[in-house]
Design a protein around this nucleic acid. Structure first.
Length: 302
DNA sequence: CTAGCATGATCAC
DNA sequence: TGATCCTGCTAGC
Protein backbone atom coordinates (compact mmCIF):
# COMPACT_ATOMS: atom_id res chain seq x y z
CA UNK A 1 0.00 0.00 0.00
CA UNK A 2 2.71 2.35 -1.00
CA UNK A 3 2.51 5.96 -2.03
CA UNK A 4 5.14 7.58 -4.23
CA UNK A 5 7.79 7.86 -1.55
CA UNK A 6 7.89 4.05 -1.12
CA UNK A 7 8.31 3.49 -4.83
CA UNK A 8 11.16 6.00 -4.98
CA UNK A 9 12.87 4.20 -2.11
CA UNK A 10 12.34 0.95 -3.94
CA UNK A 11 13.89 2.32 -7.13
CA UNK A 12 16.87 3.56 -5.15
CA UNK A 13 17.26 0.21 -3.44
CA UNK A 14 17.11 -1.76 -6.68
CA UNK A 15 19.57 0.63 -8.27
CA UNK A 16 21.94 0.37 -5.29
CA UNK A 17 22.09 -3.41 -5.19
CA UNK A 18 21.52 -4.48 -8.80
CA UNK A 19 22.58 -1.74 -11.24
CA UNK A 20 25.47 -3.01 -13.32
CA UNK A 21 24.74 -6.62 -12.43
CA UNK A 22 23.68 -9.42 -14.73
CA UNK A 23 20.55 -10.93 -13.20
CA UNK A 24 18.78 -14.22 -13.25
CA UNK A 25 15.08 -13.42 -13.53
CA UNK A 26 12.34 -15.95 -12.86
CA UNK A 27 8.72 -16.25 -11.85
CA UNK A 28 8.35 -18.94 -9.19
CA UNK A 29 4.61 -18.27 -9.12
CA UNK A 30 4.38 -18.70 -12.89
CA UNK A 31 2.43 -15.56 -13.72
CA UNK A 32 5.43 -13.69 -15.11
CA UNK A 33 7.20 -16.54 -16.90
CA UNK A 34 7.24 -15.00 -20.38
CA UNK A 35 8.37 -11.59 -19.11
CA UNK A 36 11.05 -13.12 -16.92
CA UNK A 37 12.47 -14.95 -19.94
CA UNK A 38 12.89 -11.60 -21.73
CA UNK A 39 14.98 -10.24 -18.86
CA UNK A 40 16.86 -13.32 -17.71
CA UNK A 41 20.61 -13.07 -18.19
CA UNK A 42 20.56 -9.34 -18.94
CA UNK A 43 22.26 -6.52 -17.08
CA UNK A 44 20.08 -4.17 -15.06
CA UNK A 45 21.21 -0.71 -16.12
CA UNK A 46 19.09 1.60 -14.00
CA UNK A 47 15.99 1.68 -11.79
CA UNK A 48 13.83 4.78 -11.57
CA UNK A 49 10.39 5.82 -10.34
CA UNK A 50 7.76 8.22 -11.57
CA UNK A 51 4.98 8.58 -9.04
CA UNK A 52 3.89 5.07 -8.11
CA UNK A 53 5.36 3.53 -11.26
CA UNK A 54 8.66 1.68 -11.07
CA UNK A 55 10.83 1.30 -14.16
CA UNK A 56 13.92 -0.90 -14.38
CA UNK A 57 15.90 -0.59 -17.59
CA UNK A 58 17.69 -3.75 -18.72
CA UNK A 59 20.26 -4.20 -21.46
CA UNK A 60 18.68 -4.82 -24.84
CA UNK A 61 16.05 -2.07 -24.52
CA UNK A 62 13.88 -4.10 -22.17
CA UNK A 63 11.97 -2.05 -19.60
CA UNK A 64 10.51 -3.74 -16.55
CA UNK A 65 7.47 -1.88 -15.28
CA UNK A 66 6.10 -2.64 -11.81
CA UNK A 67 3.14 -1.13 -10.00
CA UNK A 68 2.70 -2.35 -6.43
CA UNK A 69 -1.00 -1.57 -6.24
CA UNK A 70 -2.64 -2.00 -2.87
CA UNK A 71 -0.39 -4.66 -1.38
CA UNK A 72 2.57 -5.30 -3.58
CA UNK A 73 5.96 -5.50 -1.89
CA UNK A 74 9.58 -6.35 -2.59
CA UNK A 75 11.65 -8.45 -0.20
CA UNK A 76 15.45 -8.40 -0.27
CA UNK A 77 18.23 -10.59 1.01
CA UNK A 78 21.88 -11.27 0.40
CA UNK A 79 25.40 -11.33 1.74
CA UNK A 80 27.07 -8.61 3.77
CA UNK A 81 28.26 -6.70 0.73
CA UNK A 82 24.80 -6.79 -0.81
CA UNK A 83 23.22 -5.42 2.33
CA UNK A 84 25.93 -2.82 2.68
CA UNK A 85 25.28 -1.57 -0.85
CA UNK A 86 21.92 -0.16 0.19
CA UNK A 87 21.85 3.58 0.72
CA UNK A 88 18.52 3.48 2.52
CA UNK A 89 19.38 1.21 5.41
CA UNK A 90 19.04 -2.33 4.09
CA UNK A 91 15.34 -2.99 4.56
CA UNK A 92 14.22 -6.57 4.14
CA UNK A 93 11.00 -5.39 2.56
CA UNK A 94 9.84 -2.35 0.67
CA UNK A 95 6.26 -1.69 -0.27
CA UNK A 96 4.11 -1.37 2.77
CA UNK A 97 5.71 -1.47 6.18
CA UNK A 98 9.44 -1.77 6.00
CA UNK A 99 11.47 -4.03 8.25
CA UNK A 100 15.13 -3.31 8.79
CA UNK A 101 18.13 -5.54 9.21
CA UNK A 102 19.79 -5.19 12.58
CA UNK A 103 23.24 -5.51 11.04
CA UNK A 104 23.88 -8.97 12.42
CA UNK A 105 26.08 -10.89 9.97
CA UNK A 106 24.26 -13.85 8.48
CA UNK A 107 25.57 -16.64 6.28
CA UNK A 108 24.37 -16.28 2.69
CA UNK A 109 23.76 -19.47 0.79
CA UNK A 110 21.84 -18.06 -2.13
CA UNK A 111 18.14 -17.20 -2.22
CA UNK A 112 15.74 -19.24 -0.10
CA UNK A 113 13.11 -21.53 -1.54
CA UNK A 114 10.28 -19.27 -2.74
CA UNK A 115 7.45 -19.21 -0.22
CA UNK A 116 3.95 -18.46 -1.44
CA UNK A 117 3.27 -16.45 -4.57
CA UNK A 118 6.49 -14.85 -5.72
CA UNK A 119 5.62 -13.13 -8.99
CA UNK A 120 9.19 -12.24 -9.87
CA UNK A 121 12.56 -13.14 -8.43
CA UNK A 122 15.75 -11.24 -9.25
CA UNK A 123 19.02 -12.92 -8.35
CA UNK A 124 22.56 -11.53 -8.60
CA UNK A 125 25.79 -13.06 -7.44
CA UNK A 126 25.42 -11.53 -3.98
CA UNK A 127 21.70 -11.17 -3.31
CA UNK A 128 18.13 -11.51 -4.39
CA UNK A 129 14.79 -9.68 -4.50
CA UNK A 130 11.30 -11.20 -4.46
CA UNK A 131 8.21 -9.35 -5.72
CA UNK A 132 4.80 -10.33 -4.37
CA UNK A 133 1.29 -9.12 -5.06
CA UNK A 134 1.91 -6.33 -7.59
CA UNK A 135 -0.98 -5.08 -9.68
CA UNK A 136 1.38 -4.74 -12.65
CA UNK A 137 4.59 -6.57 -13.53
CA UNK A 138 5.41 -6.51 -17.23
CA UNK A 139 8.18 -5.97 -19.78
CA UNK A 140 7.79 -3.01 -22.13
CA UNK A 141 9.62 -1.58 -25.10
CA UNK A 142 11.13 1.88 -24.70
CA UNK A 143 8.25 3.58 -26.58
CA UNK A 144 5.69 1.69 -24.49
CA UNK A 145 7.38 2.79 -21.29
CA UNK A 146 7.47 6.37 -22.52
CA UNK A 147 3.76 6.17 -23.25
CA UNK A 148 3.09 5.14 -19.65
CA UNK A 149 5.16 8.04 -18.37
CA UNK A 150 3.40 10.37 -20.75
CA UNK A 151 0.07 9.66 -19.10
CA UNK A 152 1.38 10.75 -15.70
CA UNK A 153 1.34 14.17 -14.15
CA UNK A 154 4.41 15.78 -12.57
CA UNK A 155 6.09 13.92 -9.73
CA UNK A 156 6.74 15.92 -6.52
CA UNK A 157 9.79 13.69 -6.09
CA UNK A 158 11.00 14.38 -9.60
CA UNK A 159 14.27 16.18 -10.35
CA UNK A 160 12.74 19.47 -11.52
CA UNK A 161 10.22 20.54 -8.89
CA UNK A 162 10.02 24.05 -10.33
CA UNK A 163 8.88 22.76 -13.71
CA UNK A 164 6.60 20.31 -11.90
CA UNK A 165 4.99 23.19 -10.06
CA UNK A 166 4.11 24.98 -13.29
CA UNK A 167 2.70 21.77 -14.76
CA UNK A 168 0.70 21.07 -11.60
CA UNK A 169 -0.67 24.60 -11.69
CA UNK A 170 -1.69 24.16 -15.32
CA UNK A 171 -3.38 20.81 -14.77
CA UNK A 172 -5.19 21.73 -11.55
CA UNK A 173 -6.41 24.94 -13.12
CA UNK A 174 -7.90 22.99 -16.00
CA UNK A 175 -9.86 20.46 -13.96
CA UNK A 176 -13.41 20.87 -12.79
CA UNK A 177 -13.14 18.13 -10.18
CA UNK A 178 -12.80 18.82 -6.49
CA UNK A 179 -9.25 19.19 -5.19
CA UNK A 180 -9.48 16.04 -3.02
CA UNK A 181 -10.21 13.96 -6.12
CA UNK A 182 -7.66 15.82 -8.25
CA UNK A 183 -4.81 14.98 -5.86
CA UNK A 184 -5.57 11.27 -6.30
CA UNK A 185 -5.59 11.54 -10.09
CA UNK A 186 -2.17 10.34 -11.26
CA UNK A 187 -2.57 12.24 -14.51
CA UNK A 188 -2.63 15.51 -12.56
CA UNK A 189 0.03 14.76 -9.94
CA UNK A 190 1.90 11.45 -9.75
CA UNK A 191 2.66 9.70 -6.48
CA UNK A 192 0.13 11.17 -4.08
CA UNK A 193 -2.09 8.59 -2.36
CA UNK A 194 -4.81 8.66 0.24
CA UNK A 195 -2.58 9.64 3.17
CA UNK A 196 -0.66 12.47 1.49
CA UNK A 197 -3.92 13.68 -0.02
CA UNK A 198 -5.69 14.01 3.30
CA UNK A 199 -2.68 15.39 5.14
CA UNK A 200 -1.66 17.96 2.54
CA UNK A 201 -5.20 19.33 2.37
CA UNK A 202 -5.29 19.63 6.14
CA UNK A 203 -1.94 21.39 6.34
CA UNK A 204 -3.13 23.84 3.71
CA UNK A 205 -6.42 24.40 5.54
CA UNK A 206 -8.22 23.60 2.31
CA UNK A 207 -11.83 22.57 1.79
CA UNK A 208 -11.51 19.10 0.18
CA UNK A 209 -14.57 19.86 -1.96
CA UNK A 210 -13.20 23.09 -3.40
CA UNK A 211 -12.82 22.84 -7.15
CA UNK A 212 -9.24 22.88 -8.39
CA UNK A 213 -9.83 25.65 -10.88
CA UNK A 214 -11.36 27.86 -8.18
CA UNK A 215 -8.28 27.81 -5.96
CA UNK A 216 -6.05 30.91 -6.01
CA UNK A 217 -2.77 30.33 -7.80
CA UNK A 218 -0.61 31.05 -4.71
CA UNK A 219 -2.62 28.45 -2.78
CA UNK A 220 -2.00 25.82 -5.45
CA UNK A 221 1.71 26.70 -5.52
CA UNK A 222 2.02 26.33 -1.75
CA UNK A 223 0.12 23.03 -1.91
CA UNK A 224 2.58 21.67 -4.46
CA UNK A 225 5.57 22.86 -2.46
CA UNK A 226 4.25 21.34 0.75
CA UNK A 227 3.60 17.99 -0.97
CA UNK A 228 7.17 18.07 -2.33
CA UNK A 229 8.53 18.62 1.18
CA UNK A 230 6.31 16.01 2.81
CA UNK A 231 7.15 13.35 0.25
CA UNK A 232 10.88 14.10 0.38
CA UNK A 233 10.65 13.55 4.14
CA UNK A 234 8.84 10.28 3.43
CA UNK A 235 11.69 9.09 1.22
CA UNK A 236 14.21 10.02 3.89
CA UNK A 237 12.28 8.45 6.80
CA UNK A 238 10.78 5.45 5.03
CA UNK A 239 7.54 6.49 6.63
CA UNK A 240 4.89 9.16 6.22
CA UNK A 241 5.01 11.77 8.97
CA UNK A 242 3.05 14.93 8.34
CA UNK A 243 2.56 16.43 11.78
CA UNK A 244 4.70 19.41 12.71
CA UNK A 245 6.85 18.70 15.75
CA UNK A 246 4.90 20.98 18.13
CA UNK A 247 1.67 19.20 17.23
CA UNK A 248 2.92 15.76 18.21
CA UNK A 249 2.10 14.37 21.63
CA UNK A 250 5.76 13.99 22.48
CA UNK A 251 8.10 16.59 20.97
CA UNK A 252 11.02 14.62 22.39
CA UNK A 253 10.24 11.72 20.06
CA UNK A 254 10.66 13.29 16.62
CA UNK A 255 11.31 10.07 14.73
CA UNK A 256 8.47 7.90 15.98
CA UNK A 257 5.85 10.39 17.13
CA UNK A 258 2.62 9.37 18.74
CA UNK A 259 0.75 11.26 16.08
CA UNK A 260 2.18 10.88 12.61
CA UNK A 261 -1.01 12.16 10.93
CA UNK A 262 -3.44 15.02 11.46
CA UNK A 263 -6.50 13.39 9.89
CA UNK A 264 -5.75 10.04 8.24
CA UNK A 265 -7.68 7.29 10.03
CA UNK A 266 -8.44 9.68 12.88
CA UNK A 267 -12.19 9.99 12.24
CA UNK A 268 -14.09 10.90 15.40
CA UNK A 269 -10.89 11.74 17.26
CA UNK A 270 -10.12 15.34 18.22
CA UNK A 271 -8.20 17.46 15.73
CA UNK A 272 -4.67 18.00 17.00
CA UNK A 273 -5.11 21.74 16.44
CA UNK A 274 -8.71 22.60 17.38
CA UNK A 275 -10.11 19.43 19.05
CA UNK A 276 -13.03 19.24 16.60
CA UNK A 277 -13.77 15.58 15.74
CA UNK A 278 -12.13 14.56 12.46
CA UNK A 279 -14.64 13.77 9.73
CA UNK A 280 -14.85 10.82 7.35
CA UNK A 281 -16.48 10.83 3.95
CA UNK A 282 -16.54 8.52 0.95
CA UNK A 283 -15.19 10.15 -2.20
CA UNK A 284 -14.76 8.18 -5.44
CA UNK A 285 -14.66 4.88 -3.54
CA UNK A 286 -11.86 6.08 -1.25
CA UNK A 287 -12.06 7.34 2.30
CA UNK A 288 -11.49 11.02 2.82
CA UNK A 289 -10.51 12.37 6.23
CA UNK A 290 -10.66 16.06 7.11
CA UNK A 291 -11.20 18.52 9.93
CA UNK A 292 -14.54 20.32 9.46
CA UNK A 293 -13.28 23.32 11.45
CA UNK A 294 -9.73 23.74 10.13
CA UNK A 295 -10.90 23.01 6.57
CA UNK A 296 -14.28 24.77 6.41
CA UNK A 297 -16.50 24.37 3.39
CA UNK A 298 -16.26 27.31 1.04
CA UNK A 299 -19.21 28.75 -0.80
CA UNK A 300 -18.36 27.41 -4.22
CA UNK A 301 -17.37 23.90 -3.18
CA UNK A 302 -19.12 20.98 -4.83
C1' DC B 1 -8.45 -18.74 14.07
C1' DT B 2 -11.23 -15.80 10.77
C1' DA B 3 -13.23 -11.68 8.69
C1' DG B 4 -12.58 -7.37 7.24
C1' DC B 5 -9.95 -3.88 5.75
C1' DA B 6 -5.84 -1.21 3.55
C1' DT B 7 -1.14 3.97 1.48
C1' DG B 8 -4.36 1.48 -5.86
C1' DA B 9 -6.19 1.25 -10.24
C1' DT B 10 -8.73 -0.95 -13.99
C1' DC B 11 -12.54 -2.77 -16.13
C1' DA B 12 -17.52 -3.92 -17.07
C1' DC B 13 -21.93 -2.23 -16.77
C1' DT C 1 -20.77 2.33 -9.04
C1' DG C 2 -19.26 -2.27 -8.01
C1' DA C 3 -16.26 -6.27 -8.81
C1' DT C 4 -11.81 -7.62 -9.10
C1' DC C 5 -6.89 -8.26 -8.53
C1' DC C 6 -4.95 -11.31 -4.33
C1' DT C 7 -1.19 -9.89 0.39
C1' DG C 8 -0.72 -8.89 5.11
C1' DC C 9 -2.13 -6.67 9.24
C1' DT C 10 -5.34 -6.32 12.88
C1' DA C 11 -9.54 -6.52 15.58
C1' DG C 12 -12.48 -9.61 17.45
C1' DC C 13 -13.99 -14.39 18.70
Amino acid sequence: MPEGHSVHRLARQLDDVFAGEVLRVSSPQGRFTAGAALLDGRELLEATAHGKQLFARFAGEQILRVHLGLYGAFGFGGDQGFRGASSIGAPRRIGEKEAYDDGTPVAYDGPPEPVGHVRMRLVSEHGWADLRGPSVCEVLTVPEAEAVRGRLGPDPLGADTAAGEEEFLRRIGATGTVIAAALMNQALIAGVGNIYRAEALFRAGLDPWARGRDLPVPVVRRLWQDICALMADGVRDGRIITTRAPDRADPEAPVWPDHAYYTYQRQGQPCLICRTPIGLAELAARKLYWCPACQPRTGRSA
